[in-house]
Design a protein around this nucleic acid. Structure first.
Lengths: 227, 227
DNA sequence: TAGATTGTTAATCGATTAACAATC
DNA sequence: TAGATTGTTAATCGATTAACAATC
């Protein structure tokens, strides 16, 4: 039985920090979408938005939007809606967009080069510091602003340059477990199908285009069959 | 009020087809992982597997695995486990891997070319029929086995070649809404941030590398702050 | 048979939606 | 004030886990 008294300290006195700690996974997965949408509104000089407007743009219910924003802070005003600018600051802060992270790409293959060439990193405040290749190909050359290095320089580079993120585009002839808890590395953005066990300090974030394609095919098949 | 009698026809007489129709979203999102894992087992000549073994490889509970497999069919045997081969057939069938889908890529930019060059499509039984570019660059040339066409040939091509899937890598100067419910097109694999409204016959499957990167950064930030 | 492992039920947990009072 | 829109509660829905009888 919970014997705590129902005083005001119960929930309302949670600090902003404490509140952030309790963001549920489902909300967290919606935050990037909110961010993109809010950025778009700012670009169009729209400075206020209601839960209903956002819900239409994002294809979720307005109730959900209010529930979400109430959870991450105190941004709304009854009868008015939300200030786009304030929301962006709040959402950016939780997403860590204000932080400056640095990254390296492992594998100068088509996928690695595509990720490097895209404005992806710069758009999200991540600094791409180097690309590492297995064979001698491209080594010493530049892709955009970023230099290509041989693989044996990877670990020293990560340590010296305090790299936060390693983007793994292939595991052909490479064992990525050496990355775990090495230097200042905190995350592996894993585009391969290889399972990588996370460490105490280094987490693994998987992206599988194959999975995505399979899901698409599955949806199409079911649509054809009439759901 | 439901006045049906609780006869055996209630649930147990659902046909295989009917059962497939009720696959919940959460299970559907796990199916590609099961597929990859099962393929890996076959490659290593492992012909039987228990829910417990799979649960360890996939980082989910064994209870979940059993729940999932019981839902999609009747593949288990008490005291033995599951036949890997039978499971693959069942999972492939739901995922539509046995079906032959065809695709085109819109945008011969770095991302488009990376997707085209990868064995992604062939590995999943999807036939890449063409790449379409906005300006004259690359038009007439080949990327792997696939020819690059000018954009104005896109819609006639989709109709004539009965293309199922359009991979959208950019919306710079292109309005993708013309794709919806056009010809035999059933799905758009959307790598852009542009919101595309789905049609009655054409669905939209979004992949956002930006979202994924933001989520990674967010996780790292929270890890640094001690969850 | 004894041991292993599923299938299934019930309990729990978390996410979403509906509704409306509070209030700007 | 009247109208709009949030914040919050309660209801609903769906997903996950635990437990164990059924059975290979």
């Amino acid at each position: 039985m919970d014997t705590r008294l129902p005083t005001s300290s119960d929930d309302s006195m949670l600090s902003a920090e404490d509140k952030e700690k309790t963001i549920p996974a489902a909300l967290l997965s919606r935050l990037p979408q909110y961010y993109i949408c809010l950025k778009d509104l700012v670009n169009r000089d729209i400075m206020r938005v209601s839960s209903r407007e956002l819900s239409k743009a994002l294809d979720i219910t307005d109730s959900q939007v209010r529930q979400d924003f109430a959870r991450i802070g105190d941004y709304g005003r009854q009868g008015y809606g939300y200030s786009v600018r304030e929301l962006i600051i709040g959402v950016s802060d939780i997403l860590g967009i204000t932080d400056e992270f640095s990254a390296v790409i492992i594998g100068a293959n088509v996928l690695g080069l595509a990720i490097a060439s895209d404005s992806l990193f710069s758009r999200h405040g991540v600094l791409l510091k180097g690309i590492f290749n297995f064979d001698g190909t491209l080594v010493g050359q530049r892709v955009g602003n970023t230099k290509v290095y041989p693989l044996d320089e990877l670990i020293p580079f990560i340590v010296k340059e305090k790299v936060d993120i390693a983007v793994l585009t292939t595991t052909e002839g490479y064992d990525p477990s050496e990355l775990i808890d090495n230097g200042s590395l905190r995350g592996i953005w894993n585009f391969t199908n290889r399972f990588i066990e996370r460490g105490e300090k280094t987490l693994v974030h998987n992206v599988s285009l194959g999975d995505s394609l399979m899901t698409l095919c599955c949806k199409i098949k079911r649509l054809k069959e009439g759901r």
